[in-house]
Amino acid sequence: MTAKLVQLTVNGREEHIAADGLISLQQVLREKLDYNTVKDGCTQGGCGACSVLVDGELALACLLPVSRLEGAEITTLEGLNESNSAGVIQESFVEHSAAQCGFCTSGMIISAKALLDENPTPSRDDIMEAISGNLCRCTGYLPIIEAVQSAAGKLAKGGDGE
């Protein structure tokens, strides 16, 4: 199998990845680059635990072959933590007890971030739509919806953390 060299930017750092075959972005991020916030709940595109931002857009890392990502800019939750650009969302998740086991949570935060970047004043329906690809077996979603709503409210009031 011939490995193709792919250049990516992950959380602001340039990476050169030998992309053999169909190796996924999830495998590269988790196993080669040690970005542990990228979880694996299914490897089938069905749970959202591996959500990341690719060029600012929400994407499921388990479905993306790295070979197709030449030049892409990837942001994982580690990146958002470093820039504190999800601080308000994370604070709201804590205030609303929006996680129990926490396994879905990094994906949820990424989805919420993608939503609020795109639409700072989402309706409840917009929020439900935005997280509909992120499964949570623990919380029953209500605290997550409330957390995202409250984060939107804070950001609209010119909340800090951005």
Partner: peptide, 16 residues
Amino acid sequence: DFLNYGMTGVAEMPEV
């Protein structure tokens, strides 16, 4: 997979 194992979607969650 999850796509075919029906779990209630976020939109179907009522007030509790």
